[in-house]
Design a protein around this nucleic acid. Structure first.
Lengths: 348, 348
DNA sequence: CTGAAAGCGCTTACAG
DNA sequence: CTGAAAGCGCTTACAG
């Protein structure tokens, strides 16, 4: 008898994979869930079968049979953020691998308590907090009050009592400064980010370390305050370039402000990078949506999101099985991405 | 024996409701699904029990047992796209409402066939195609060959045989042109988008219509070809501004090129909008990550994504129940967002 | 380290 | 109009 019309074209199941690999369905399940007690040879055979057949586990079945679906909330402050796309791709990817349900919610710091209450009430097991929410004490406090585990992503100095995934902002900014010095720059301007974001301070520290490493004294006039927006970068860069002895390079602590610094330089008739070098930080979508494209520090937001999901899921599982859940801090590798906005200082 | 620690707090089931109402679980299922053949009295008893117990059906169980979970694929060409965040937010939102699984996959037009094959193989029921994939014939053709229903989002001229959600690009560009004319502009430059994107042609048509409406003849030199990138906008705007009689306003057919046009003007020492007006199209994240912020046409990408999911789900359900599925074309409202980059022409 | 059995909560297909 | 049986695809708990 044929399958009824309403039925889906039947997808592959764990049994197909088991048959293909010559093991039991149970073993396939173990491999899928990354359990320990499987011989390497067996594991590889199963993985090969999964690849061959292009098998994908049925999430409904996993939730139904499993120890309870994990539901993770991703709070963001702004749907227009330049990092949101990558952030979502990473979270989604890891969630689908681990059969975790992702609930995405918009949240202003102002309504943190209401949102936390709602999350607690709708059976959310944990929350991921990207910038700038990761640095909003109202939000982390409200979540802590509701006993909801949290992992902050890309915070400069994450609170000790919540999990975090980040890059070493001090090191990264240090390396960028070293790169600039290596190019021959000695007068390097710096544009600080929003004072509430803990990463801003870390990046400044890295810049300072890079300078002192080669015995260059920091100069107050070369360090200008921005607030992470394009507009603030424009003003800060203008101040820098109007200096009696302007910098030969400008290091902005995010890409928005770096793009603005490029614009500010060009407005004064300066060519980037021939007349002045400009570098950014973050490698947001903006870094390649400008000209010249920005030399910048790549924060691997996608991978950081993936790890955040994993950390959070582990913490949730530990809690469910009654174990104590210790917050973990993970550091990921950054990279200096060289594009078109940097070069040696202009010969006098 | 107690439930194992790992198990979630067990929720109410259809059996609890059945017992409470004095019927079989099957009857409860019928009531929940609004089937016809249930006596009114029985139906009411069941509904009362559902209310009394505050019962909520388990979605995982329904998907597993039922006519099959709907799985929708979202194909994107680039994780760094400035629209991806909003697009994902919209799809995710609608999918969670309708108990649909969203699978996000990266796809180059070059590997369209491989991706289509993989999707067909992994039991994806339908695919959403945002720009620029919506205009890639290789992709739509490969999907059609695999019999996978498609809905394209934000295509200028969607193929007649696939569903589509879009705004009226001709009208929108027409309205923007009318706005510029209303401000007093008569020499309006236009930067065309990538020739492969069907929306580019539509936007040009709207611009032309707006001009002819007030009896202004189109001028070839005022219409410059771009390719939708920032870089191309820079060059096109430079050509426009170098004209013997330059335009008093520039209408770029996307925000990337508009941001570039602003930069090009500023590089020539022109103030935007005092010396020259620049407007964009799309309201991408870029529109507010520049200065002045761009006056632009808002494409409601979030809502368009939501509707795309709904359209696709309906088409999938129709197919499954053996009905013929007609592609539908939905038009959403655009809006002219006025920000800081437009003004009246500079008095001579 | 691996597998056979039972069952997650619901719906389908059939029988009355 | 209603119900008893089987099964969706997976995981848990147990046994070896």
């Amino acid at each position: 008898m044929p399958r009824s019309a309403g039925r889906q074209k039947s997808a592959l199941t764990i049994h197909d994979v088991a048959r293909h690999a010559g093991v039991s369905p149970m073993t396939v399940s173990r491999v899928i869930n990354g359990e320990k007690n499987v011989r390497d040879a067996t594991r590889e055979a199963v993985n090969a079968a999964i690849r061959d057949l292009n098998y994908q586990p049925n999430p409904a079945a996993r939730s139904l049979a499993g120890a309870g679906l994990i539901r993770i909330g991703l709070l963001h402050s702004n749907a227009r953020s330049v990092h949101l796309g990558e952030l979502l791709i990473g979270c989604l990817d890891q969630c689908s691998r681990s059969n975790i349900q992702l609930i995405v919610e918009q949240c202003d710091a102002a309504h943190a308590e209401a949102v936390a209450a709602q999350l607690a009430n709708s059976a959310i097991d944990g929350v991921i907090l990207p910038p700038p929410l990761c640095d909003a004490p109202e939000v982390t406090r409200a979540l802590a009050a509701s006993q909801i585990p949290v992992v902050v992503v890309a915070a400069g100095r994450p609170p000790a009592d919540v999990s975090a995934v980040r890059i070493d902002d001090v090191q990264a900014a240090h390396e960028m400064t070293r790169h600039l010095v290596g190019l021959g720059h000695r007068r390097i301007g710096f544009i600080k980010g929003h004072p509430d974001q803990t990463a801003s301070g870390q990046r400044l520290d890295g810049y300072l370390a890079g300078l002192s490493e080669v015995g260059v004294a920091a100069e107050q006039s070369l360090i200008q305050q921005g607030d992470s927006t394009y507009r603030s970068g424009l003003d800060a860069a203008a101040r820098l370039l109007a200096l009696a002895e302007p910098p030969t390079a400008i290091f902005a602590s995010n890409d928005d402000m770096a793009a603005a610094a490029v614009a500010a330089a060009q407005r004064r008739g300066l060519d980037v990078p021939r007349d002045v070098t400009v570098v950014g930080y973050g490698d947001s979508t903006l870094a390649t949506a400008t000209w010249p494209e920005l030399t910048t520090i790549r924060q691997p937001i996608g991978d950081m999101s993936r790890e955040a999901v994993t950390l959070l899921a582990n913490e949730i599982r530990a809690r469910r099985s009654g174990d104590e859940a210790h917050p973990r801090h993970a550091l990921q590798a950054f990279a200096l991405i060289r594009r078109g906005s940097d070069g040696p200082p202009k010969p006098p």
